[in-house]
């Protein structure tokens, strides 16, 4: 199996505060990898380093054999890495379809001159993109919502649109930042099936951060645990559940 993502001793410091300390992980292709940890453990910071939004203080991120540290985030997206956000961040004034279309932006095949002159090339590719977007929406069961404003959808569907939008960029690796946050048990369950389905049909590797233990235990093959920026454990769900360090980190969290 190929290694999709390799984090090599990533450290991220803000001023005097170390948010992530020498975080290392290897994520094999086609697996669902979970990163858990109490609030403020540095999970999202680790994500932001991987996606290029933050430049790590030290360490290396390797994506399918290429170091991506220092690359612009949009560049990393075009290499096949897509993400969602903890607090769903759709383009609220665009329709669902238009939201999906923005995902094709980095492989846009017409230029500004085509746009202004409305050349055949413009019409051809605009039509192609719209068809592809509809197909994508159909495959995730959201086609009937295509022309609705994104801000008008219920919470669970907004999350699904956000994931579909990330899929539109054509990723090999999908990063999900607390996808189940704010969802009720039924929505969470639906989301779990949804993620599994898209993982299979789009042939993805999934790397997710989650606070909800049950969600991660049911979905992920391998789980790493972060506490105060340090990785304290890694293993399959059973191992993680039994790990005394993990229990302590979480109990400590409840305590506080």
């Amino acid at each position: 199996m190929n290694i999709a993502l390799k984090c090599d001793k990533i450290t991220m410091k803000f001023g005097g505060l170390t948010a992530v300390n020498e975080f290392s992980a290897e994520i094999r292709e086609h697996m669902i990898f979970g990163l858990i940890g109490p609030n403020g453990a540095g999970k999202t910071t680790a994500f932001n380093v991987i996606t290029g939004n933050l430049k790590p203080t030290s360490g290396d991120v390797n994506f399918f054999g290429k170091s991506i540290v220092g690359l612009k985030p949009y560049k990393i997206v075009s290499m096949g890495m897509a993400r969602t956000f903890q607090n769903i961040r759709l383009f609220s004034n665009l329709t669902v379809l238009e939201n999906i279309l923005t995902g094709f932006h980095h492989k846009l095949q017409y230029n500004i001159v085509d746009t202004v002159l409305r050349t055949p090339r413009y019409y051809k590719h605009e039509k192609e993109m719209r068809n592809t977007a509809r197909e994508l929406l159909k495959s995730v069961g959201l086609l009937d919502k295509a022309d609705l404003k994104a801000s008008g959808l219920p919470y669970g569907e907004r999350r699904e649109v956000e994931i579909a939008r990330a899929l539109a960029t054509g990723p090999k690796l999908l990063l999900l930042d607390e996808p189940a946050a704010g969802m009720n048990p039924q929505e969470t369950l639906n989301l779990m099936y949804f993620i599994q389905e898209v993982k299979e049909s789009f042939n993805l590797t999934v790397f997710l951060i989650e606070h909800d233990m049950k969600f991660v235990m049911n979905l992920c093959e391998t789980i790493a645990v972060l506490d105060h920026g340090v990785k304290i454990a890694e293993g399959n769900p059973e191992e993680i559940q039994k790990n005394p360090d993990v229990i302590r980190a979480y109990l400590g969290d409840i305590d506080a």
């Binding site: 949009y74 997206v77 897509a82 993400r83 969602t84 956000f85 383009f91 995902g103 980095h106």
Partner: peptide
């Protein structure tokens, strides 16, 4: 931020 995450 989301726009950047879309590769824009």
């Amino acid at each position: 931020d989301a726009a950047i995450a879309m590769g824009i």
